[in-house]
Design a protein around this nucleic acid. Structure first.
Length: 264
DNA sequence: ATGCATGTTACATG
DNA sequence: ACATGTAACATGCA
């Protein structure tokens, strides 16, 4: 589920727990999400400390707790965050649960492709400030984009858009949305783009990232029906621009939805 | 039962 | 070393 904007939404789900000291911490130490983690130490460190701040970068989330404890989270394919009220019980796959006066802050992930990490440092961990620019910010310039296209000229554009070091936060539905909006076939490669198409693709990336954040991040509402988003998974889905059937193909090992009459 | 899933990565291949 | 492709991971749902 979670891509750029869904991650931003889930990241905010613990907000009402801000400032509330953690009175109890539980971690399922036998799930894939915490493999290699010293869960005993993490639990000890969480106790008594309150959540101070949170931020996202692409599909990553980072939570700051008191006294220089930072909890990193990735939601994988099926992860989510929530607060469970104190009178309801925890749910299956609540792999991390932090008891506070505001409720249980939980990390839930049935498929366990998500990941939790922690860091001890007074300020934001070093690696965080070195992450590549997200597509919607000013630092993601046309020149930066051009250098990506030049360096990775042979991969199908659909695959390229999914590389997190290049387009942090873009996932399967966003990549399809971007290419549909730009009217470019998903199996084209960067080498085949003329300057006009490259410019169109750049603008589409920015439009989709910003639009997703605007529509989805505040309360998980769907983007408008003018987007491919609302049509892409339906059986017999119709392209909102042409009225013709959407098609599904596999590109770079991922299911890809596109509109043959619309994308060239 | 079968096939598939909005993600990442270790490993294989060119 | 670099770019790209494939399998594997663990669970739920149609």
């Amino acid at each position: 589920m979670p891509e750029l904007a869904e991650v931003a939404y889930y990241c905010g789900c613990w907000a009402s727990g801000k400032g509330a000291p953690i009175k109890e911490a539980r971690i399922n130490s036998n799930v894939r999400c915490v493999r290699g983690l010293d869960t005993k130490s993490l639990i000890e460190q969480l106790l008594g400390r309150a959540l101070l701040s949170w931020r996202t970068h692409g599909k990553r989330m980072l939570f700051e707790f008191e006294s220089g404890l930072w909890l990193g989270a990735h939601l994988g394919m099926t992860g989510s965050l929530a607060i469970r009220s104190l009178d309801e019980s925890l749910e299956k796959h609540d792999h991390l649960a932090l008891y506070t006066d505001a409720g249980w802050l939980v990390f839930n992930d049935p498929r366990q492709f998500g990941k939790l990490e922690y860091y001890n440092c007074p300020d934001v961990p070093e690696f965080w400030s070195k992450l590549p620019p997200e597509p919607m910010i000013p630092e993601f310039t046309p020149d930066h984009f051009a250098s990506i296209l030049k360096r990775r000229s042979k991969a199908p554009l659909k695959s390229l858009l999914l590389v997190q070091d290049l387009f942090p936060g873009v996932g399967n539905w966003m990549a399809d949305e971007i290419l549909w909006k730009a009217r470019i076939r998903p199996d084209r490669n960067a080498h085949s783009l003329d300057p006009r198409e490259a410019k169109k693709l750049y603008r589409s990336i920015r439009f989709v990232c910003r639009g997703a954040l605007k529509h989805i991040a505040p309360n998980y509402s769907d983007p408008p029906r003018t987007w491919l988003f609302q049509h892409r998974w339906k059986q017999g889905g119709i392209c909102p621009r042409t009225g013709e059937p959407l098609e599904r193909i596999e590109v770079g090992g991922r299911t890809t939805c596109w509109s043959p009459a619309w994308q060239a």
